[in-house]
């Protein structure tokens, strides 16, 4: 059976990398689109995001992608959110003076502190840019074959503090603990970029391509 993956294209940046990585991970049919019909016809959906969240969400809503995503999630279609895509799934973000997000998960995205430092006083740069380890806190199908504390590539200045919520699937530590991945029902989302995380990222994408949307 041919499986189609729709990558939601709401005009906020390059989706070439996500598409290439999905193909490398084994996807035979990838469509990059904002069209509701095409997205709803797909077997699984990737919700990428890069840039400022207010602009991202404004375009996402203007194109009607919020309604499309809601319909898909209600049907149980597997969805993978990436970076600002993950942040957009939260209730709220402090970025751009405060933005109401899509509300799939409780919680507020916030900025790393100014003059951020480690417990031992070492200065920590923002953006949190580079490879950090992800501690898995759920036994989720998307972690299959990926070691606990494996490295993934992050680049972000805003993050979701690691709340003790059931939905946190993995966390990172950067002077402060943050959510590296969240999961609920058929939705899985990562703060890191699997498409830029070499073998571990490609494995996670391959897992997503065979995931039936249940845990």
């Amino acid at each position: 059976m041919t499986q189609t993956v729709a990558v939601i294209d709401y005009g906020m940046g390059n989706l070439h990398s996500v598409e290439s990585a999905l193909r490398e991970a084994g996807a035979s049919d990838v469509v990059v689109t904002a069209d509701a019909k095409a997205i709803l016809a797909a077997d699984r959906i990737v919700f990428p995001g890069v840039g400022a969240i207010r602009d991202c969400l404004a375009e996402f809503r203007r194109l009607g992608c919020d309604t499309t995503l809601r319909l898909a999630v209600d049907r149980g279609t597997p969805v993978l959110g990436i970076c600002v895509g993950m942040q957009s799934l939260m209730a709220r973000s402090d970025e751009n003076g405060g933005v109401d997000c899509l509300g799939y998960f409780d919680g507020t995205v916030t900025r790393f502190p100014r003059n951020h430092s480690d417990a031992d006083g070492t200065k920590l740069k923002v953006p949190h840019m580079g490879w950090n380890q992800v501690a898995q806190s759920q036994n989720h199908p998307l972690w299959d074959g990926i070691a606990d504390n494996a490295y993934f590539y992050f680049v972000h200045s805003f993050f979701l503090p690691k709340a003790e919520s059931d939905y946190v699937a993995g966390s990172f530590n950067y002077g402060i603990k943050g959510s590296a991945a969240i999961a609920k029902g058929s939705v899985f989302a990562t703060q890191f970029h699997p498409e830029k995380s070499h073998d571990n990222g490609l494995k996670l994408l391959a897992n997503f391509l065979t995931w039936d949307g249940t845990c």
Binding site: G13, N14, S197
Partner: peptide, 30 residues
């Protein structure tokens, strides 16, 4: 390169305008 390399890619040299940046990002530069 971007279609075969799954780590971040930075591109520099001769970047003069916003249009140059857009083209490089659209080509797959991170």
């Amino acid at each position: 390169i971007a279609s075969q390399v799954f780590i971040p890619l930075t591109v520099g040299g001769g970047v003069r305008a916003v249009t140059d940046i857009r083209r490089l990002l659209n080509a797959g530069a991170d």
